[in-house]
Design a protein around this nucleic acid. Sequence first.
DNA 1: CGACTCCTTGAAATTGGTTTTCAATTTAAC
DNA 2: GTTAAATTGAAAACCAATTTCAAGGAGTCG
Lengths: 145, 145
Amino acid sequence: MGEKKQTFRDYLSQQGLKSTRQREIILDEFLRCDSHLSTEDLYLKLRKKHPGIGYATVYRTLKIFSECGIAEARNFGDGQTRYESTTCEEHHDHLICKDCGAIIEFEDPGIEQLQEQVARDHGFAIVSHRLEIFGLCAKCQNKER
Amino acid sequence: MGEKKQTFRDYLSQQGLKSTRQREIILDEFLRCDSHLSTEDLYLKLRKKHPGIGYATVYRTLKIFSECGIAEARNFGDGQTRYESTTCEEHHDHLICKDCGAIIEFEDPGIEQLQEQVARDHGFAIVSHRLEIFGLCAKCQNKER
DNA sequence: CGACTCCTTGAAATTGGTTTTCAATTTAAC
DNA sequence: GTTAAATTGAAAACCAATTTCAAGGAGTCG
């Protein structure tokens, strides 16, 4: 069993929550699609194979995922919250194509360092940050010409 | 008359829109309070002196401000759109205190440069970006101890 | 295996911010 | 002034997120 699944189960029992058929199904599907899914996206995917699962359950389960650290909530300003499966790797940020919606992840230690410097200069203690670069991906730049 | 007011009027006539009492009042109040106001914030402020002005009008007028470039819409993930008066200066980003909500603006050319580098590496053409650093401001760090 | 408690589920309702509708009014051009 | 087109404010619609609630399910303890 994947370590994410174990983490999730541990979290449930530790919190006095219950392991249910729906939660297992939702986790499986979530892990299968590793892209940046909104609640709606995941709900629609699930509905194909498991029509019984309700939107509210998907919503609540994603929330638990983010509480127990196996997923992270993001919002890119389009009014929808998206969840991404957390990696054990470094923090990363996003390049987002305004045209096709493609989302590319990147890491840049240099930027992170400069951020820390900025925070220090203002007496700020960083808790988190987010950086999003909006633009046109290579593909969409070509399309437009 | 401020240049912002002129810009606004020019934009209105150029678009076949009309200059109205409400729009003037809203612009005056908006320029007076240069902080990061939500529609709600501005509406409430306005209501004190001008109870007649409706929420919808404030909303629509702020939208025009951002269309004509004298204001910029931001959303910091608290579910509310905030508008800030644009400066002629450099692009800037934000430090946001999770405790008291204080918003500090900063510029960092170094970070901007690294972003451009990242975009180039991915064949991306930058249209815009946003960087927000969440944390605790100096004041709130002291409060908590 | 029950019995019992607490958690979960799905549908529907609610919330909160945003956006639109509509009839009445105002603006600006002729 | 007259008139066409834009604007206004109140209310309604919208949309994603969140909560409610009654029915059903999981886990625990004997």
